[in-house]
Design a protein around this nucleic acid. Structure first.
Lengths: 200, 200
DNA sequence: CTTTATATTGAACATTCATTCAATATTATA
DNA sequence: TATAATATTGAATGAATGTTCAATATAAAG
């Protein structure tokens, strides 16, 4: 029971950090502000996270865990039906709920840290490699993908997905947004249908 | 001549800001540090940029201007030969020099601000729309693109390019890097060759 | 040369920052 | 119950933050 307090407090602090970062931005969220938000002295926060760097590192773990949740609809169908429809994959990847799962502002702020912090870079790399491997495994389970280079396909699909999310963040006009999403979905469907990607 | 001092000082300050941001990160670069770096009192910086927000806004202008420079090899060939080879386009878009033109860490840190600042978001949107329009114009000039939906193609090509740059930032292993770049280049070539993109 | 506008300086401001520390309260273990 | 470990508090630290201001230097315009 002793450990419980420690872990739940840590979770509470990270979540408070995240919530305030969504509102004010990562760079404007101080330890004092988190403390005020959670009704907790700053010294208690530093008891659990000795430095700000450690605190941020844990926030990134938290965000990357959330990031993985986009896969839930796919893995759910995989468990229930034993295999996954390609349409479900594409629709899941481009679903707007993904965007609602976590805040893009915080996500990209944290991402920007990879350029000056090797540990964070590695964390991001591992996550993104994992995502592609998962997709490869799913594709390998589909009879339509027989004989295709699924590893390459997974890379190519995700580059479209991530490029799309990056770009679409700037698009405000809903009609414009929908048109572009349709472009990118078709692009992915074309990739998955293509015969040019067959293995040697 | 009076105006000259003002503009050159402003340029000096923004460049100093940028340089320090590359090293220490945008969020760790204060006005005092810029002043020390340029041997200049902080008050002089605030004379030209009354608030930090304005300073950042100008830094973003500076970065986005640099971003546009990736197009130089293409526009150069366009001026010299009257038309552009598709290979030159793809190779230019994926050239490593692009990465060296400006720092990705600063670029993504600034990008993260679009989620809490409409003005910055609009600036980013305008730039990215401009990039796509330029590519469309270039494609329209190519006989190989006759009858194709070049607007859509430009969108699809850039989503691959930007997704690739985002993803490749995390990749450290050079062999891995090259493999993936080859994937994404082929992906773009396939897009440009595809017959499925014909206009209605 | 005088006047006016701009450039530059250095000191000062309150505020916020991450972090430290010693003291106390709570809980788990023996 | 006594002891040891953890949880929590509140006050204090010095350094850094963005910003303001009045004073001075320099250059342009009349």
């Amino acid at each position: 029971m002793k450990e419980k307090i420690s872990t739940s407090r840590k979770k509470e602090i990270i979540e408070g950090f995240y919530q305030l970062s969504v509102i004010n931005g990562l760079e404007n969220t101080s330890i004092a502000k988190i403390g005020k938000h959670l009704d907790m002295p700053p010294s208690l926060i530093m008891h659990y996270f000795p430095t700000r760097e450690i605190l941020i590192s844990n926030l990134i773990d938290y965000i990357l865990e959330k990031y993985l949740l986009i896969y839930q609809p796919i893995t759910k169908q995989l468990e229930e039906l034993g295999q996954v429809d390609l349409t479900v994959i594409v629709e899941t990847l481009f679903s707007r709920n993904w965007n609602l799962l976590f805040d893009d502002g915080v996500y990209y702020s944290c991402f920007a840290l990879i350029f000056r912090n090797e540990k964070i870079k590695t964390e991001y790399r591992i996550l993104h490699y994992k995502l592609r491997e998962s997709l490869k495994d799913i594709l390998d389970g589909s009879p339509e993908m027989e004989g295709k280079d699924t590893a390459m396909l997974a890379e190519q699909v995700f580059v479209v997905v991530e490029g799309a999310y990056f770009y679409l963040s700037m698009v405000d006009d809903p009609a414009d947004y929908d048109t572009k999403v349709a472009y990118f979905k078709n692009q992915v469907y074309a990739l998955l249908r293509s015969s040019e990607v067959e293995k040697l």
